[in-house]
Write a protein that binds this DNA or RNA. Sequence first.
DNA 1: TGAATATATGAATATCTGTTCATTTATTAA
DNA 2: TTAATAAATGAACAGATATTCATATATTCA
Lengths: 104, 104
Amino acid sequence: MDEKICPDKTCPDIEILFDLADLFKVFGDSTRLRIMVLLSDAELSVTDIAESLKMEQSTISHQLRVLRQNKLVRVRRDGKQMYYTLDDDHVKKIIEMGMDHILE
Amino acid sequence: MDEKICPDKTCPDIEILFDLADLFKVFGDSTRLRIMVLLSDAELSVTDIAESLKMEQSTISHQLRVLRQNKLVRVRRDGKQMYYTLDDDHVKKIIEMGMDHILE
DNA sequence: TGAATATATGAATATCTGTTCATTTATTAA
DNA sequence: TTAATAAATGAACAGATATTCATATATTCA
């Protein structure tokens, strides 16, 4: 796997680029982005997030599944609740990079 | 504009997050991503890109418009040809960050 | 000017995606 | 076990989006 990476880190390998597009797709939805930002400084339950964003529990749950599948969040069960957190620091950094571009 | 940025740079301001989602949406398509990677180390014409990716000129042109509108590429006319380059280093960095996440 | 080439654009379409509603699964506490 | 609460899931629908085809615009050169 390591030998596929180009020296300049912008490897044009087509399969990786498909995966990369899939990753960015996850960041390309405001609901998911808002969830990630919320989780960037707090561990929250599904209900917490839904109330905070004033959206349906089902919507949040569906989107958390997407985030989970892409390893962007981690879950921990505590009784009836599931507590979510960001998975790693890449997430924050990707968001910061995007923010930098937008704010010129 | 500057006062909207949070100290930790993951500002939860909802309007900015919509813009941010729009930006990531642009990265979330493999064709656009492949174009950006191609342009990361060369200035290329529309035809160059279309041939390199083995896709229709029209497809590339449509996607270049999206990249232009989001200030991710710059254009220069030379005779009948339009030569495209990446607009700034943020683009490369965003791609690198995503790559880092994928490659764990 | 007219032909040839490069790029851009508009309409149409097929596919994808986010949300909602209804329901199910899982856990706790009575 | 049963009722109550939290979260996940599936189907359906509406809206968004990438590609294609056909055409228009722009530039060069004869």
